[in-house]
């Protein structure tokens, strides 16, 4: 039996970059798709709204693990040979888009109706209303919950270890298999996740508090 040493720790530590990279990739791509979903959900056409809402319902109403399995094992049956990175990136992009789309729709709808009416009165077209008047205000509201979701996303990447994608959790598993010391390995893995997520959580709370203060001050004016 091998003792858990510095090299094993460094192996786990270096696997953290895959967790970070996957989170960032899913956040960037999922953010793009999520923005589209959010805009579609406030569309004037009810069929478009329904389609976007169904997308959100479908991916928020089914387990992430199932989505991973379907993409990883499922698509290969259609002759699409996906390597682990592509499959996992697609799955997490879809997953992040469902949640971000829903969060951002809420933020867009939180902007008072008068803003739409006022910009309409100034003869702005729909795209101008949305991108010049509504969005700049909605983005400010959206920042705290978006940072909060980033925590959820980092934690969700752990599930990718189940289909064999090597990131922080999978590296922990590999080291457990090599050293037979789960008592040391898994708490270390947990602490590494904590050091990724905790600052983000604190930041999200801070942003939320600051926003609430600004909101109250703004109302007093």
């Amino acid at each position: 039996m091998r003792l858990f040493g510095l090299n094993d720790f460094l192996f786990i530590l270096s696997a953290t970059r895959w967790t970070i990279l996957l989170s960032l990739l899913a956040f960037a791509l999922g953010g793009l798709l999520g923005a589209v979903i959010a805009v579609l959900r406030i569309s004037r056409f009810s069929a478009v709204r329904l389609a976007a809402a169904s997308y959100v319902q479908l991916f928020q109403g089914t387990p992430l693990l199932m989505q991973l399995f379907l993409i990883y094992y499922g698509l290969s049956l259609f002759g699409l040979r996906l390597d682990a990175w592509t499959a996992v990136t697609i799955a997490y992009t879809i997953y992040a888009a469902a949640f971000l789309g829903d969060i951002w729709r809420g933020c867009i709808q939180a902007i008072p109706k008068e803003q739409w009416e006022a910009s309409r009165a100034l003869a702005l077209g729909y795209a101008h209303q949305l991108f010049l008047v509504i969005m700049p205000q909605a983005v400010r509201i959206a920042i705290p919950p978006t940072v909060g979701f980033l925590v959820q996303l980092v934690k969700a990447t752990a599930v990718a270890s189940i289909i064999g994608f090597v990131e922080l959790t999978r590296a922990g598993q590999l080291m457990t298999n090599a050293t037979f010391q789960p008592m040391i390995v898994y708490p270390i893995v947990a602490v590494l996740y904590l050091s990724l997520c905790w600052p983000l959580s604190v930041w999200a709370q801070h942003l939320e508090k600051r926003f609430r203060v600004e909101n109250v001050m703004g109302r007093r004016k």
Partner: peptide, 19 residues
């Protein structure tokens, strides 16, 4: 509360079941 909310459920399971 903060410890659980900032670590993945899967890792918590591994700690409970394996550690």
């Amino acid at each position: 509360v903060e410890g659980i909310r900032n670590t993945p459920f899967l890792v918590q399971l591994y700690i409970i079941f394996f550690s």
